[in-house]
């Protein structure tokens, strides 16, 4: 059954969109990631213009993360205090990231810089998380707290503005989550995603937040980040397709509920190793994409922002309207 997407300007299978949404929602509920880093490439693969795919992703992530936040909140997995501090840092970092993107665009190949950032960040995080989780699984630990990093706790505990985060059962300087949120914000802006897949490992390994709380808190923070991004994309680029977002959300909000419940059946280290594998898989796909001979030597130039090509076509078409049949 086809459905016509008004902003993307294309017709696409309705079950396909709902199914893709359900898969991404499931991963989102399970790991606390927004899913943008997986969904945007999938949507581009099924023919959605890149700018519309990225902007509509943000909109559907709002639905997924609000559903996921509600589910995790009932299970006591959302640290609102920590989430708010991370969000403030993330907003500041996001603003810096947008400026960096502007500089990169001015220099020329922002596309390559973005892809290389993806590969470096994802392989680093995925590799470390995989190694650590494997070690933890081998030891049979229930909820390992990364002992060798705990040595750094003494140093961090001497920093000013110490604050208690009772839900996460940790105490550390407010500067740390602010900086962490800022760093994730910069990376998220450069990479064009919500940043959950960077945020969760950072929260677990640097803020010592329990994995389940990290998942719930990450969704809480992503909800607000994506709300801001969606509004800005709609206002600046006119690339948010609400119908596309709602169809994806119809699948993803159900998927996220199943994922959130399944996350309670798995131990923290099991969740971490699954997320690590997912991150490494995405990295491998990106490396393959960089090395593989492209199908075409021309790529649409608006993949990372700017007004959609479709709108230009539509604008010109309207102004060339022919009144009647004409003979030459």
């Amino acid at each position: 059954m086809p459905v016509f997407l008004p902003v993307a300007g294309i017709s696409i299978s309705l079950p396909l969109l709902v199914g893709v949404g359900a898969l991404i929602g499931f991963l989102s509920g399970l790991f606390g990631v927004g899913g943008g880093f997986l969904l945007t490439p999938i949507l581009m693969l099924v023919g959605i213009p890149p700018t519309v795919a990225a902007a509509s992703d943000s909109c559907q992530i709002i639905a997924t993360s609000s559903s996921g936040t509600a589910a995790h909140s009932r299970m006591g997995n959302v640290d609102v205090k920590l989430g708010t501090v991370l969000l403030l840092g993330g907003l500041a970092g996001g603003a810096v990231g947008v400026r960096i993107i502007r500089v990169l665009l001015g220099l020329g190949d922002a596309d390559l810089a973005i892809k290389l950032t993806y590969v470096i960040v994802l392989s680093g995080i995925g590799g470390y998380m995989f190694w650590e989780s494997l070690t933890s699984l081998k030891r049979g630990a229930l909820e390992m707290r990364v002992p060798h990093l705990a040595r750094g706790r003494d140093i961090l505990s001497r920093l000013p503005f110490q604050m208690d985060f009772p839900r996460s059962k940790v105490r550390h300087s407010v500067v740390i989550p602010l900086l962490l949120g800022g760093l994730v914000g910069v990376l998220a802006a450069i990479m064009g995603v919500g940043g959950g897949f960077i945020m969760i490992p950072m929260m677990v390994y640097l803020l010592w937040t329990p994995m389940h709380v990290a998942v719930g808190t990450s969704l809480f923070q992503i909800l607000f980040t994506c709300a801001g991004v969606t509004f800005m994309q709609a206002q600046t680029n006119h690339t948010v397709d609400l119908l596309l977002a709602l169809l994806l959300a119809a699948g993803s909000t159900i998927g996220v509920q199943v994922g959130a419940r399944m996350s309670r059946l798995l131990r923290g280290d099991q969740l971490r190793i699954l997320l690590a594998l997912l991150v490494l898989l995405v990295t491998a796909r990106m490396v393959f994409g960089l090395a593989r001979t492209p199908r075409s030597l021309l790529r649409p130039a608006d993949e990372h922002g700017g007004a959609g090509k479709m709108h230009l076509v539509r604008h010109v078409a309207v102004h060339r309207a022919l009144p009647n049949t004409t003979r030459n």
């Binding site: 909109c59 559907q60 709002i62 639905a63 997924t64 993360s65 609000s66 559903s67 996921g68 509600a70 909800l223 709300a227 969606t230 509004f231 709609a234 948010v240 609400l242 977002a245 709602l246 959300a249 119809a250 909000t253 159900i254 509920q257």
Partner: peptide, 12 residues
């Protein structure tokens, strides 16, 4: 878009 998405999420 934001309001509809939030309502859809909480509704589901």
């Amino acid at each position: 878009s934001v309001v509809v998405a939030v309502l859809a999420g909480f509704g589901i």
